[in-house]
Design a protein around this nucleic acid. Sequence first.
DNA 1: TATTGTTATACTCTATAACTATA
DNA 2: TATAGTTATAGAGTATAACAATA
Lengths: 158, 158
Amino acid sequence: MSSRSEVPEAAVAALDQILELAVLLDEDMERELAARGLTKSRTRVLWEIAQRPDSNQKSLATAVGVTPRTMTGLIDGLESTGFVVRAPDPSDRRAQRVQMTPQGRDTANWLVTSRVSLADDLLGDMSSWQLGALRDGLAVVTARLRRAMEEAMKERKS
Amino acid sequence: MSSRSEVPEAAVAALDQILELAVLLDEDMERELAARGLTKSRTRVLWEIAQRPDSNQKSLATAVGVTPRTMTGLIDGLESTGFVVRAPDPSDRRAQRVQMTPQGRDTANWLVTSRVSLADDLLGDMSSWQLGALRDGLAVVTARLRRAMEEAMKERKS
DNA sequence: TATTGTTATACTCTATAACTATA
DNA sequence: TATAGTTATAGAGTATAACAATA
């Protein structure tokens, strides 16, 4: 005798599984980063710098989604721990260009390889069919959530 | 001509999809909670209090995984915003029992219903077969990650 | 006038260490 | 002696507002 419920328990169970994995991934990343003297926020910035070298702080702040003031603090932290340096922008004396040190570049490279090796550890033995199904299912969920959040944004404005 | 790579790109793509969804879920939760005067950390505590009423701060700190000092601050926040109250423990005059206010109980109930309605919004129309496959795939990944983290812990000790 | 980055201030989460009251 | 919770202190992330230097 199956219990009749409007929202299938299977959907809640699947969401819980997603949330559990999300929390665990977060903890794992934070631990790995801490072992190398990084935090999540600083890593986000370092990654952005790797993508667009010689950015100024303003553009980094916009890209990462924080205020310029917060970016000042993040760059302070990355600079004092040796990952980046500030250099004057020759074309605008107000601005600071943020550049990676060799240590910063090594770390950015490590970020890339560790992402691949994590994928291998967690998913390496799955068939391409399985991987495709997993990815597609998650992509649908992601798209729906993004749309729901955008609509909630609009309502916030009204 | 398929590119031969040791780690299939499909695995990396699937991991990226998991990470993207995790980030989005995190943002969504934080936004919803903020609209009700809560933070993630305080919500975690409120949830724990709902599960084990009349806990003292020490047991909550252990359950949530923070130091007793941090729990003091979290309870301070929850108390000043009206979600919980401290009450003396009749059996131990050192301890404080943390109890939910009506507002706290309402919020705890809302946490439950919002989880179900999110599952419905995101996954409600999937077949039980699809949901099962998604959940099982994620469960495998979760179990592997948990095992990897535990092993990393052991190595840290040695 | 507008923009870049900073100082000033404030709130949250986190931790360790020292201390009080109680067990 | 051990435990529960606090004060004291510190670091990290986040924000707004005011301000300096420059565009």
